[in-house]
């Protein structure tokens, strides 16, 4: 009995484990097959970012692999990242254009074109964990903005 129980007990968990492992193994095989199929399908997909550019910068970073599928994988991941940033920036841009100016209605821009600005981009990048700040002004020379008496010429 005890043996049976133990056996049964062992068999129960064992069966459960077996089922679990078996199910996990089948799922893992399915995932591996899906990954392999996805990598092979990348050979037919042409990303916006060219392979030569990705290979160049991957090689500069120390990543050397002759498999073109991995280069395409990195290119697709980069394109997805870029597409997410662009779509978020587009939403911010549309919100900025659609917002009415209450102070002076004559100052509302008639040009409704969607222009990517640094403000929209910085808001979108902040959501992706990138802090972007652009300079408030640009000095064309080291002495620009200084008093005439303090300039060294």
């Amino acid at each position: 009995m005890m043996n049976n129980n133990s056996g049964g007990g062992a068999g129960g968990p064992g069966g459960g484990m077996g089922t679990g492992v078996g199910g996990g193994g089948d799922g893992r095989h399915d995932d591996e097959a899906a990954l392999t199929e996805f990598l092979s399908s990348l050979m037919d997909y042409t990303p916006t970012i060219p392979d030569e550019l990705v290979e160049h910068y991957l090689g500069r970073s120390g990543f050397h692999c002759p498999d073109l599928r991995l280069t395409r994988l990195v290119a697709v991941a980069t394109q997805k990242f870029l597409s997410d940033i662009a779509s978020d920036s587009l939403q911010h841009c549309k919100a900025r254009v659609a917002a009415p100016i209450k102070d002076n209605k004559s100052k509302q821009p008639k040009d409704r074109r969607l222009v990517l600005t640094m403000d929209d981009l910085s808001k979108a990048l902040r959501e992706h964990g990138v802090n972007l700040k652009h300079a408030e002004y640009f000095a064309d020379s080291p002495s620009a903005g200084m008093a005439p008496s303090t300039r060294e010429e």
Binding site: T48, Q79, A86, S87, L114, L116, M118, H134
Partner: peptide, 19 residues
């Protein structure tokens, strides 16, 4: 190209350089 595909009409040069 990616920005144009996303729906932008044009972009500032500084923003493109940042991207």
């Amino acid at each position: 190209q990616a920005l144009e595909a996303a729906g932008f009409d044009c972009a500032h040069r500084s923003a493109v350089d940042a991207v």
